[in-house]
């Protein structure tokens, strides 16, 4: 970090500063040039900057503003202060949705990363073969399928006479069969598995890419020292992948906390709010109950939670680097 104290522009400025002329005129010339260059920089940044302010910061600020009002989205609103936030934490349904989202992290993050590590490590061992290419492609496919399509497909698989139950019946596990998405115990895990299936491909590919960067000499040295594959994995592969793992976890944790599509398609929060997540609750509050204020408050809480989980992850990653 400290190296960055003199930014690239200031370095450039010193190299290019003119030799002749009085100190005064030199200073003026420098300022003019800086102004011109800064002006150009601002001009280049402006389109993106304006779009960012208009379409990202403004809606965000509006959400924060709305969260202090009782508003149905159409008629005059009334200021209610922090009431909406109090409701978010008092309403068992709403904080229940937050708890569900955290439970989903297990399925959306931990399982894909763990499985991704294992699979990537396996594929690496035959990295150059055609089989590696095929398995990489097949495993990555779920990532390019729209989430809505994935949701629909899995509701069919999970149906009471769907593939999942058919397979269970074939192997004699009739007693385990159930309407997976309609059962109070299994609905959330079932939805979680859909998420794991979707995110697994991304994690696997990222980790595999990371593994190709690792110097083969390290493995050779380890092998000479008598390390087995397990030792190799934990002593070399895992530490070298810290950055990739942190990216995977960040992306998938956000996907878990802010999940919406898969659940909207497969269970719509049911049965009995077992799979209700904040994203869906916000949507329902804003568009069906028309409680825009409460929906905004929940959205702000969700944003703070996501930041609260993701920022420490980033810091951990950065500290590891230095």
């Amino acid at each position: 970090m400290p190296q960055r104290q003199t930014g690239p522009t200031s370095g450039l400025r010193e190299v290019m500063s003119p030799a002749p002329g009085s100190p005064e005129s030199r200073r003026r010339a420098r300022r003019a040039r800086r102004l011109r260059r800064d002006g150009l920089a601002w001009l280049l940044v402006a389109p993106a900057g304006i779009a960012y302010v208009l379409f990202v910061l403004r809606p965000m600020a509006q959400s924060v503003q709305f969260s202090f009002y009782d508003w149905d989205g159409v008629t005059q609103s009334t200021w209610v202060g922090l009431d909406n936030y109090v409701q978010v934490f008092q309403n068992s349904e709403l904080y229940g949705s937050i708890v569900n989202a955290f439970e989903l992290i297990v399925y959306f993050s931990i399982i894909p990363v763990a499985l991704g590590l294992f699979t990537a490590n396996t594929i690496r061992s035959f990295a150059t073969s055609r089989l590696a290419l095929v398995s990489r492609t097949v495993l990555f496919l779920p990532q390019i399928i729209p989430l809505v399509a994935a949701g629909i497909m899995w509701t069919w698989l999970y149906a009471s006479n769907g593939t999942v139950n058919q397979v269970l019946r074939i192997i004699g596990l009739d007693r385990v069969t159930r309407a997976w998405l309609g059962d109070f115990g299994s609905a959330l895990p079932a939805v979680g598995v859909i998420g794991a299936w979707v995110h697994f491909g991304l994690c696997m590919l990222l980790l595999l890419a990371g593994m190709t960067k690792i110097d083969p000499a390290l493995y050779e040295a380890a092998r000479i020292d008598g390390a087995g594959p397990v030792r190799e994995f934990f002593a070399i592969t895992l530490p070298s992948l810290r950055q990739e793992i942190s990216v995977c976890i960040t992306v998938t944790v956000i996907a878990a906390l802010a999940s919406f599509d898969i659940i909207y398609i497969s269970t719509q929060g049911g049965p009995g709010n077992q799979t209700l997540v904040p994203g869906l609750a916000i949507y329902r509050l804003a568009f069906f109950s028309r409680e825009v204020g409460l929906a905004s408050a929940l959205a702000v809480v969700l944003m703070v939670l996501v930041l609260g989980v993701v920022l420490p992850l980033q810091r951990l990653n950065r500290e590891g680097d230095s």
């Binding site: 302010v53 600020a61 149905d72 008629t75 005059q76």
Partner: peptide, 16 residues
């Protein structure tokens, strides 16, 4: 930036 965004959001109460 935030102030600008708030200004754009129009600080009048929503729905007015």
């Amino acid at each position: 930036l935030v102030a600008g965004a708030l200004a754009l959001a129009g600080c009048s109460s929503p729905g007015s």
